[in-house]
Design a protein around this nucleic acid. Structure first.
Lengths: 269, 269
DNA sequence: GAGTGGTCTAGACCACTGA
DNA sequence: CAGTGGTCTAGACCACTCG
């Protein structure tokens, strides 16, 4: 009855003790020690359930005690696994209530990934205006970034963010076509709340983490018109690659930020 | 013998049990619950020892077992305190060896805080060239940022970073004069290794964390000459406020980055 | 082999939430 | 009040480093 524990389906796992003699497999190349602590295996299992949609964004996951029973490990081990997930913002702990699947849809702080802050006043409060939303064969650079095959279709969304009636951000957003069937400008406009909330609830695509590359560039004709600036004005170029579970890239976003009255904030440690 | 535990000097602390009846002080305003877990108190004590220089950067701090004995708590509690310090990069754990005070002086990855990456190739490998180093009364905005009194002296350092013989970064660095007595261009030039390493070993000032504000700006005459660009060329402006223990600001740095062949990298989660 | 940090367990108790 | 996450403990054992 204890020969199974919880990791019964994990290829790199142990039988009933956490680290049996067999846990040091094939030392052939003097590489890949391949020892995985129990709590990381549990973390992987929980992540798999998150990915499979066993619990939906915003919902509570089972309590630590339940999970401990399910996986046949101690509560402390489950706790450590959940702590790691909470550190990665995949999950939110709320004392006395439970542990909840993170969501972009209901956050008080909208725009979890938007680091632009007005010089005076609070972040947020940006108004969205969509310019267009088109399906097409993915250009080469886009396809490469999104790991699409040549010829696959992509969705391009362009939009502006306004702050106090002035355009501040011009975004050019690329998405894999096969994940976003039926995405139209109308649905984008109708949806209240952050765009990543719509992606989550309507298309089941959850943005987990992202990398950004920032540069200073000069406004070209198109950008200068849309952002109401002179050609050549300096703009902050922000290229973001967003990823979902398994580090799979699912969005490439090219933003141009007017930083005359805003700044991009970052913390180092 | 157990009435003292370790937190004997902490005003917001308990006697011998972690959370005695008295731990809910003065609920007057319906504010400030002021409950501090033991491990956070231990963390604060360790931080105080770090700040006081009881252990120097690069050195090992006492083992978990020793600290547990000193503070009269369990090893698990010490462990949680150290985990928190490691998360904040104040300390580095090395299995089998010990826990070490973090340092800017010996890191393999130099420039822990520099997020600029060349488009092709590895980060780092920048050559420093100092332009000048002067002491003066702190300008008003600098004094405010560094929390100096009007009239206090400040040190201004200007320098360039070159990559493959081309100037890429122009830094304008402001430091509180009273912390950096005797800082000269010579000492800056002679020192091998990152500038924060010199600050650490020569002046006992340790940069713990920092906030940056990024903008796109147009190069003025001075910057364009030093960075060998046309006037008006777009530059990434990076204003960094660095802090030491207790969140005390100790450096204001204004950088201008040429992002034609480099980008500023950031990770979101 | 001795000493370090890393994992895992089991159990007690506390703080918070909501019915 | 019961149920949740949060803290603390004590002890066992493992993985890593170095002399």
């Amino acid at each position: 009855m204890d020969a199974a524990r919880a990791v019964c389906c994990n290829p790199a796992m142990a039988a009933s003790t956490p680290t049996p003699a067999a846990s040091r497999p094939a030392e052939g190349d003097g590489d890949a020690p391949a020892f995985s602590p129990l709590y990381q295996q549990i973390k992987a299992l929980i992540t798999r359930s998150l990915q499979s949609g066993e619990w939906r964004p915003g919902e509570a996951i089972p309590s630590e005690i339940e999970l401990a029973a399910r996986f046949k490990v101690s509560q402390g081990t489950v706790r450590k696994a959940i702590d790691a997930l909470a550190d990665e913002n995949l999950v939110v702990r709320r004392q006395g209530k439970g542990t909840f699947v993170a969501t972009h849809a209901e956050e008080k702080i909208q725009y979890r990934f938007l680091r632009l802050t007005p010089d005076t006043g609070e972040p947020g409060g940006m108004e969205r205006r969509f310019i267009d939303c088109r399906r097409m064969r993915a250009p080469l650079d886009i396809a490469r970034a999104l790991e699409l095959k040549a010829g696959d279709t992509a969705v391009q969304v362009r939009r502006l963010l306004h702050f106090l009636e002035r355009p501040v951000v011009l975004d050019d957003i690329w998405l894999p076509g096969h994940l976003f069937k039926g995405l139209t400008a109308e649905r984008l406009s109708e949806y209240k709340g952050p765009m990543y909330g719509l992606f989550e609830t309507e298309f089941g695509v959850r943005m987990i983490r992202a990398e950004e590359q920032l540069r200073a560039v000069a406004a070209d004709a198109a950008a200068s018109e849309l952002l109401q600036l002179e050609v050549g004005a300096p703009l902050l170029s922000v290229e973001r690659l967003s990823r979902t579970y398994g580090d799979k890239p699912v969005e490439l976003r090219r933003g141009l930020y007017n930083t005359q009255a805003h700044y991009y904030r970052n913390e180092l440690s």
